[in-house]
Amino acid sequence: TLKVHYKYTVVMKTQPGLPYSQVRDMVSKKLELRLEHTKLSYRPRDSNELVPLSEDSMKDAWGQVKNYCLTLWCE
């Protein structure tokens, strides 16, 4: 499951381990945003700071799954 905080919160079913490009595509379609305006980030467990997502950091983000849910933020 993927939970995304935006102006409102959406929850989507997804497969764990998807690459950033696929996750961003899913989120942009769900929120009806243009792909270039979809910026995603996540919060590591040991931090209060949001970390921007990229293809490289997506593996780390999937490591933050809690209760089968990855929580992301969209700007």
Rank of each mutant, 00 (worst) to 15 (best):
C74L: 02
V65N: 15
V23Y: 09
L18G: 03
S57N: 13
V4K: 05
R45V: 12
N48V: 12
S21A: 14
L35R: 15
V23F: 03
S57T: 15
R45H: 14
Y68W: 05
H37Y: 09
E55G: 00
V27C: 02
K13E: 14
E36R: 03
S57H: 00
T9H: 02
R45N: 10
T9Q: 04
K3G: 04
V10A: 09
D46H: 14
Y20H: 04
L35G: 15
E32D: 14
T71A: 01
R34L: 07
T71M: 02
E36N: 02
L70S: 12
L18T: 11
S54Q: 08
L35V: 15
Y8N: 13
D25Q: 10
G63N: 12
K59V: 12
V11C: 12
V65R: 09
L2S: 04
M26V: 04
Q15E: 14
E32G: 15
S21T: 11
D60P: 04
T14C: 15
Y8H: 14
V51Q: 05
K29M: 10
Q22V: 14
R45G: 12
S47G: 12
R34P: 15
Y68R: 15
W73C: 08
S41R: 09
K29Y: 06
C69W: 01
Q15M: 09
D56G: 10
Y42N: 03
C74F: 00
D56S: 12
V27D: 05
E36G: 03
K3S: 00
K59H: 14
L53G: 02
G17S: 04
A61S: 03
S47W: 03
V51G: 04
V27K: 03
Q22D: 12
D60W: 04
C69K: 00
Q22E: 14
W62A: 00
L2C: 00
M58C: 00
K30S: 08
K29S: 10
K66P: 05
K3W: 07
C74H: 06
Y20N: 09
Y42P: 00
V51D: 09
L50P: 09
L50C: 07
G63F: 01
E49N: 09
K30L: 01
V11N: 00
S28W: 05
D25A: 14
L33Q: 02
M26R: 06
L40S: 01
A61D: 07
Q15N: 09
D56F: 06
V10G: 00
T38G: 05
T14K: 05
W73R: 03
T9N: 07
N67V: 00
V11T: 14
M58F: 03
S47R: 11
R34A: 13
T14S: 02
S21C: 11
A61M: 00
G17Y: 13
D56M: 09
N48T: 14
K66E: 15
C74R: 05
V4L: 00
Q64F: 06
V4S: 01
K3R: 11
P16M: 12
P52Q: 14
K30T: 05
N48W: 09
K30D: 04
R34Q: 15
E55D: 12
A61L: 00
L33D: 02
C74W: 01
V23D: 09
W73M: 05
Q64L: 02
Q22N: 06
L33T: 02
K29C: 03
S28A: 15
D56P: 03
P19K: 08
T38P: 04
T38A: 06
V11Y: 11
P52H: 06
E36V: 00
T38V: 15
K30W: 01
Q15D: 13
L70F: 14
S41Y: 15
P19G: 10
T1N: 09
D56H: 13
K29P: 03
L2M: 07
P44A: 13
L53T: 00
L31F: 06
T71K: 04
K30N: 03
G17H: 14
D25L: 10
Y6W: 14
K39R: 12
Y68H: 15
V10S: 04
E32R: 15
E55A: 02
Q15L: 10
R34C: 08
E49K: 13
Y6V: 04
R34K: 14
V27F: 01
D46P: 08
E36M: 02
Y8F: 07
E55P: 10
H5A: 05
N67L: 14
G63Q: 10
K29R: 13
T14G: 03
G17L: 08
K30I: 04
L18S: 09
G63M: 12
R34M: 10
V65F: 07
S21W: 13
Q15A: 11
S57P: 06
A61K: 04
T9L: 04
V65H: 13
K66H: 09
E32S: 13
K3Q: 13
D60L: 09
V10Y: 08
S54H: 11
Y20S: 07
T9G: 00
E32M: 12
G17K: 01
C69D: 05
G17I: 08
R45Y: 10
H5N: 07
K39S: 10
G63V: 07
D25C: 07
V65M: 15
Y68Q: 15
L40Y: 06
P52A: 12
S47F: 05
V23M: 04
E49A: 11
V11L: 12
T71V: 10
S28Y: 04
E32P: 00
R43Q: 11
V11K: 09
E49V: 14
D46A: 08
V4R: 04
D25H: 11
P44H: 12
Y8P: 00
K30Y: 00
D25S: 11
A61V: 02
V4M: 04
N48F: 10
K30V: 08
L50K: 07
S54Y: 06
K66M: 01
S41T: 01
N67M: 00
C69G: 06
N67Y: 09
E49T: 12
S28C: 10
A61Y: 01
K66D: 15
M12I: 15
E32N: 15
L18Q: 03
C74V: 14
S57E: 09
G63E: 11
K13P: 15
K30P: 03
Q22T: 12
M26W: 00
P44E: 08
R43I: 10
V65C: 13
L40Q: 01
Q64D: 11
V51W: 02
K39H: 13
K66R: 14
L31N: 08
P16T: 13
H5R: 06
E36C: 06
E49C: 13
T38D: 03
L33C: 10
Q64M: 04
V4T: 04
L18N: 07
T71C: 09
R43M: 14
L2D: 08
T71P: 05
H37W: 02
E49F: 12
V10W: 03
K59D: 14
K3N: 04
V65D: 05
K13M: 08
T38S: 02
L70M: 14
M58S: 00
K29W: 06
Y6I: 12
K30E: 11
D46M: 10
D25T: 07
L50T: 01
R43F: 05
K66Q: 15
E32L: 07
K66L: 05
S54R: 05
S54C: 10
L18I: 12
G17N: 15
L2G: 00
E55F: 00
S54K: 12
N48E: 15
K39A: 11
W73Q: 10
V10L: 07
K39V: 13
V51E: 09
L53D: 02
K39W: 06
H5L: 06
L35W: 08
Y20V: 00
K39F: 09
E55T: 07
M58G: 02
C74G: 03
M26H: 05
T71G: 03
R43N: 08
R34H: 10
T9F: 02
D60N: 07
T38R: 01
L53Q: 03
L31T: 00
K13V: 06
W62V: 08
L2W: 02
Q64A: 12
V23C: 06
V23S: 04
C69Q: 14
H5W: 01
N67C: 07
K66A: 11
T9D: 05
L33V: 02
R45E: 13
P52C: 13
V65T: 14
Y20A: 00
L40R: 02
L31Q: 04
C69A: 06
L18R: 02
M58E: 06
K13T: 09
E55K: 00
K39P: 01
Y8T: 13
D60E: 12
S54P: 02
Y42Q: 05
E55V: 02
P16W: 12
S41A: 06
D25P: 07
Y8M: 08
R43V: 10
K29N: 09
S57F: 04
K3A: 03
A61G: 07
L31W: 07
K59I: 13
L31D: 07
K59N: 13
Y20M: 01
Y68L: 13
C69V: 10
K59A: 15
E36Y: 05
N48I: 10
R43K: 14
K66C: 06
K39D: 02
Y42I: 09
K13H: 10
L18A: 14
K59Q: 14
V51I: 12
K59G: 13
L31E: 01
L53M: 02
M58N: 00
C74E: 01
L18C: 05
D46F: 11
Y20K: 11
D25M: 14
S47M: 06
Q22G: 04
